[in-house]
């Protein structure tokens, strides 16, 4: 008679890191950057903003580009399944850092998105980047990493303005003053070029002078 041998195993203890490191950036040093800006072109206040990675249900993700960027921000935020802690913006409008996500690798193979939120005075605003890949499968030690190796651009925007807009860099530290094109939340927001604004001012002064004569 064969004896059935029961072996009671002990679960492997949790890995010390056991997460997927996701590194994202919209600027690199002082040479290149695409700041996230509000509807006036001002880089968003980093104390009122954050970024995170996560995923959406497929049906919702398929409809992201068709949503009204002005009114659907909260719906997008509610539909986003965040994975891991949020990351911060290093400087107004700019982020270049790493977050730990997907503890337990539950999101392996799920589409990977990044959500930027900004608590604007008029209400929260959301910007979604499609990172074009899935959450990776973690290795046996529970580790995986994603680094796009490039800046996020408007080409990656899945919910938000897919066209670059002029950025007012006067609020950025001088080394970053060259980042004059940004990414914004709302389609249709008219952000005047600095030169256009100046012409308008001059034209206005000219009309005022003519009236006084």
């Amino acid at each position: 008679m064969k004896l059935k041998l029961l072996v009671l195993g002990v679960a492997i203890p949790a890995a010390a890191n056991a997460a997927t490191n996701v590194t994202l950036q919209n600027f690199s040093g002082v040479s290149s950057g695409n700041p996230i800006v509000d509807n006036t072109g001002t880089p968003i206040d980093n104390s009122l903003s954050s970024w995170a990675v996560g995923t959406f249900e497929t049906a919702f993700a398929d409809g992201l580009s068709g949503l009204d960027t002005v009114t659907a921000d909260q719906a997008v935020i509610d539909a986003f399944t965040q994975s891991g802690a949020s990351g911060s913006l290093s400087i107004n409008g700019l982020f270049n850092g790493t977050v730990e996500s997907d503890s337990g690798n539950a999101n392996a193979n799920a589409p990977l998105y990044a959500l930027v939120t900004y608590n604007a005075a008029a209400g929260v605003q959301a910007l979604v980047f499609d990172l074009g890949r899935a959450f990776p499968t973690q290795d046996g030690a529970g580790n995986a990493s994603v680094d796009l190796g490039r800046l996020l651009t408007t080409d990656d925007v899945a919910f938000g303005n897919t066209n670059p807009v002029a950025a007012d860099t006067s609020t950025l530290p001088p080394p970053f003053a060259g980042f004059n094109q940004g990414i914004t939340f709302d389609v249709g927001a008219v952000i005047p070029e600095p030169s256009t604004g100046l012409l308008s001012l001059i034209a206005g002064l000219g009309l005022l002078a003519r009236r006084r004569r």
Partner: peptide, 21 residues
């Protein structure tokens, strides 16, 4: 190396003796 952040940088993680790095 990174440029104003960890983007593109090799990161060196050293065990801290308490299970983290």
């Amino acid at each position: 190396a990174g440029n104003a952040g960890t983007g593109g940088a090799d990161q060196v993680w050293i065990p801290d003796g308490t299970g983290g790095f």
